[in-house]
Design a protein around this nucleic acid. Structure first.
Lengths: 249, 249
DNA sequence: ATGATGATTTTTGTATACAGGCTCATTCCT
DNA sequence: AGGAATGAGCCTGTATACAAAAATCATCAT
């Protein structure tokens, strides 16, 4: 009953996973809190089997932690954990970029990325960037990073990049919305775009070290955004999974 | 019935996971072959629920691949995939070493690693290394690498290192047994031990770049072992999951 | 008042039954 | 003879029932 049209064809497991993930990310469950399967069943509106499946998937995603005596609890992250997760993602993207550069790519491969680049250019051209433009940037940025990983042409590398980007706050666009309220917003986006441009240039010129280095630095932009957002004490509601980040001790 | 004493207390899920993993790694299932749950139930001797759980876990481990229409198949890897997986592992271990170096460690932290070092020294001292000594090396080497990851004191980094090492042929000791039959065997072990020594030295001296670089190079030793083993066309039976590696096209 | 112990109650782990979908083989039509 | 359609069998996804283990609460003893 009350099943939404949009979710009608997907499996119960996926539906439960989406529902529970959303619940965790919006703070419906407190970090450290044990997730009762029965409770999850009520929320998701499916039976225990797909709920259990969803919990396992969310654990591998990094949002949940297995309790030794059984069951799962919501994971909590220190600010340091978040910064390290970003560093891990940057390291993996650096590897992807380096391999792409070392192994060479055709102009045909980088074409869709250049398209992304151009579209982002348009978005950040005006002096004042609208909230909607930030949203559009998030999608475009995610696409750019996905394409970059694929440029490595290495399934194992792509897989690991994806896993490193799974945590909402570690993902390439994790803190973009958070910075939308910051005065430094446009500046950071301009710098990020410069990074995008450089990594493509480096890859096309087969400069592996340069490509790797710029992607690592690029990820650290997200780290800087986090620190700025924390210091400003305002835009944190805009960062996904902010509720999972426990106050620094 | 016929339940082994050693496996009596573990959960059915873990038992199924161990059984199926072993079956895959020893070639009981061919790469690309669909794993029937019913068939897995017979093999593991438990019901479908824990089998299904085990299959999901083996998928995240990287041994299985989900089939879009449902179910799982045994994953197959090209030689390039294996080499890339090793590179991923080396990159993550490099990150762990760099962070350890940059953030500093106490002598108390590196003490157990120095113990490992000393024990390995004893093992590889004789000119001829026995098969048993190789086995002992595998355990000691695994312990050293685990300790190194922990030196980063970063749960996200440790987690990602572990995931990168999960594939048998990507693990730090993946190709050690394979090289036991190689003439270059002792030489490689001596060089590997030198790497171990250097990474500790670098970390203690807070030389982040050096620590990172040496761990990357250290992982490439495994890559070299693979190539040697493939060329020699003999010791491949000793490498775990060799059956998953499809002949290079 | 505090700690321990035991019973109750909830929760998770496991097994199994059922239904829908997919695969494959057979057959029929062109 | 080749291809498409149809049907049967099997397989996976889901729900639910049952049992064992864990957590909680109350009661009793110190």
């Amino acid at each position: 009953m009350a099943e939404r049209e949009t979710e009608r064809s997907v499996s119960q497991t996926v539906r439960a996973q989406l529902t529970l993930r959303d619940l965790i990310l919006t703070g419906g469950l407190r970090p450290g809190e044990r997730i009762s399967e029965l409770q999850a069943v009520e929320v998701a509106g499916v039976s225990r089997t797909p709920v259990r499946m969803a919990l396992v998937r969310l654990e591998e995603e990094g949002l949940l932690e297995a309790i030794p005596s059984g069951g799962f609890m919501v994971k909590s992250f220190s600010e340091r954990d978040v910064l390290d997760s970003i560093e891990v993602r940057g390291t993996m993207e650096g590897l992807a970029a380096r391999l792409a550069a070392e192994r060479g790519v055709s102009v045909r491969d980088t074409e869709p990325m250049r398209e992304c680049l151009a579209q982002i250019d348009e978005l950040i051209a005006p002096q004042e960037i609208s909230f909607d433009a930030f949203s559009a940037y998030v999608a475009l940025n995610a696409r750019f990073h996905a394409l970059l990983a694929e440029l490595s042409r290495s399934p194992p590398v792509i897989r690991q990049v994806d896993r490193a980007s799974a945590l909402p706050f570690a993902s390439p666009s994790g803190f973009v919305m958070a910075q939308s309220a910051l005065p430094e917003a446009r500046h950071i986006l301009v710098v990020a775009q410069e990074h995008h441009r450089i990594v493509i240039d480096a890859i096309e010129n087969r400069e592996g070290a340069r490509a790797e280095g710029i992607m690592r630095e690029h990820a650290r932009l997200a780290a800087r955004n986090l620190r700025l957002a924390v210091k400003a004490r305002g835009p944190m509601d805009l960062v996904p999974a902010a509720v999972l980040i426990k106050a620094s001790t």
